[in-house]
């Protein structure tokens, strides 16, 4: 077994508090609680390198998704288009700043921040370098990650497509496809970063300092 990724001894189930010995997992193993079925941890030997690569690709796609037209409408020759940031920004014009901020946070800002932090953290772990900011960055990632709604927004796009198609011609722009691939990669990156292993690595790096 890869020594550097040697796993911490014990974990308690988050749902029922039972304790488990997870020290002998092998590459690709997923451990779950035998009392309630809850997920404990998943061990992948080179997960941090993979996560960095996926997160960089996702971040690039999100940037592209924000800068190109997302959808274009055509109603008897009248054209109207929108970009991704406009989904949130146009709500300000209707005096709904709170809603605008929430939408921007759920579909753009939180995912972008999480990706940047994941690249920094998983990158540092992959390179076996310790920095003082690893702990606060780790805390932010695992606090923010449940607040991204990229996949929900994507379903929302599909629903609005059907709603509009009765009124006008819709054309999907380049940003639509970029965002589609981005949402998939984002979920891969976030689920690929195993909480227990990630913190075990941070602890190890700080001790070797």
């Amino acid at each position: 077994m890869d020594q550097r990724h040697d796993f911490p001894g014990y974990l308690a189930c988050q749902s029922c508090d039972s304790m488990f010995d997870v020290s002998r997992l092998r590459d690709g193993d997923t451990a779950s609680c035998s009392r309630c079925g809850g997920f404990l941890t998943r061990y992948v030997a080179d997960q941090f390198v993979q996560v960095v690569a996926i997160a960089i690709a996702a971040l690039v796609l999100l940037a592209l998704g924000c800068s190109y037209p997302f959808m274009t409408l055509n109603l008897n020759g009248l054209e109207s288009g929108m970009t991704l940031p406009q989904v949130a920004l146009s709500l300000i014009a209707h005096r709904m700043p709170l809603l605008s901020i929430s939408v921007a946070a759920f579909i753009i800002v939180i995912p972008a921040v999480v990706l940047i932090l994941v690249i920094a953290l998983a990158g540092a772990i992959a390179l076996e370098r310790h920095f003082d900011w690893l702990r606060p960055v780790g805390r932010l990632i695992f606090t923010l990650q449940s607040w991204s709604m990229v996949e929900v927004f994507f379903l929302g796009v599909l629903v609005s497509l059907v709603k509009i198609s009765g009124i006008a011609m819709v054309e999907m722009g380049f940003a639509f496809w970029a965002y589609a691939v981005f949402s998939f990669l984002f979920l891969l990156a976030v689920t690929g970063l195993d909480r227990a292993q990630c913190w075990h690595q941070i602890e190890q790096l700080s001790q070797h300092e």
Binding site: M71, L73, L75, L78, S80, G81, M82, Q86, V87, A88, L89, S90, L91, H94, L99, V103, F106, I107, M149, V152, F153, L155, G156, V157, V159, S160, K163, I164, I167
Partner: peptide
């Protein structure tokens, strides 16, 4: 997943604006 309808409204507001 309940957020879908809010997102649909936001998209329609941004898009349908003549």
């Amino acid at each position: 997943w309940s957020m879908i309808d809010v997102f649909v409204v936001a998209i329609l507001v941004a898009l349908i604006n003549w």
